[in-house]
Amino acid sequence: MASPSAPQGVLEAAVYVDDLDAAEGFYAGIVGLKVIIRHDPRHVFFVCGQSVVLAFVAAESSQPGDGSGIPVPLHGATGPGHICFSVPGEDLDEWVDYLSAKGIGIEADFHWPNGARSVYVRDPAGNSVEFAEPKLWGLKT
């Protein structure tokens, strides 16, 4: 089965993972995002439209820096986070079929009171991954 068109952007993102290979397999291999940098064992970054999805290993990003001189503060999270990809409504059925064919269970598929549709799955780290129409937040496709 051919993959659907790549998402058009990120609406919401907060992703911490415990396995970079699994994260890359899901976000690059399944969702179709392009890897722009990977720094083992700390993170892998993906481009999505005009946005970047950052997947950090929380245990690594909560430790002091690697000596590169980049003053990024310590950060990290525990428990599942959430990311929402912007997908035109007419592509959501194709995404449901594609994800199901890849063995990824659909956790929820519904229409919001404003008519926008959202489809939810889980990534390998347990993060909630949503594919939603931009009109969810009043945005245009």
Rank of each mutant, 00 (worst) to 15 (best):
S68C: 11
E90T: 11
K34A: 15
F85A: 02
Y120I: 05
S118Q: 05
I70T: 14
D40H: 09
G65H: 10
G138P: 07
K140G: 13
Y16V: 12
F46Y: 12
H111P: 10
Q8Y: 13
W137C: 09
L33F: 10
V87Q: 01
D123F: 05
P4L: 06
R117F: 01
H39T: 14
A116V: 00
G115R: 00
F26K: 00
G126W: 02
D97Q: 15
G65F: 12
A13D: 14
V17T: 10
E94D: 13
T141F: 11
V31A: 08
W112I: 01
S5A: 15
V44Y: 02
G81E: 02
L20H: 02
Y16L: 12
G69N: 09
G105A: 14
L74T: 13
R42C: 14
A6H: 12
A132D: 08
A22Q: 05
G138V: 04
R38A: 07
V72Y: 15
N127P: 04
S61H: 13
L74I: 15
G81W: 01
L11F: 14
H39M: 14
W95M: 02
D40R: 08
W95V: 00
G76P: 08
S100P: 05
K34G: 13
G65T: 11
G115F: 00
C84Y: 01
L139D: 10
S86E: 04
S86M: 08
V17Q: 08
S118M: 01
T141N: 12
P80S: 06
V129W: 03
V53L: 13
A108N: 06
V47L: 14
A125R: 02
E107L: 05
G126Q: 04
G9F: 02
V119N: 01
A58R: 04
G49K: 07
A58E: 07
S100M: 06
S62Q: 13
N114D: 00
P73Q: 15
V53R: 03
E133Y: 00
R38Y: 05
P80R: 02
T141C: 13
D123S: 05
V31L: 10
F46G: 05
V96W: 06
G69P: 07
P73I: 14
A23G: 03
E130N: 06
V53W: 06
P4S: 06
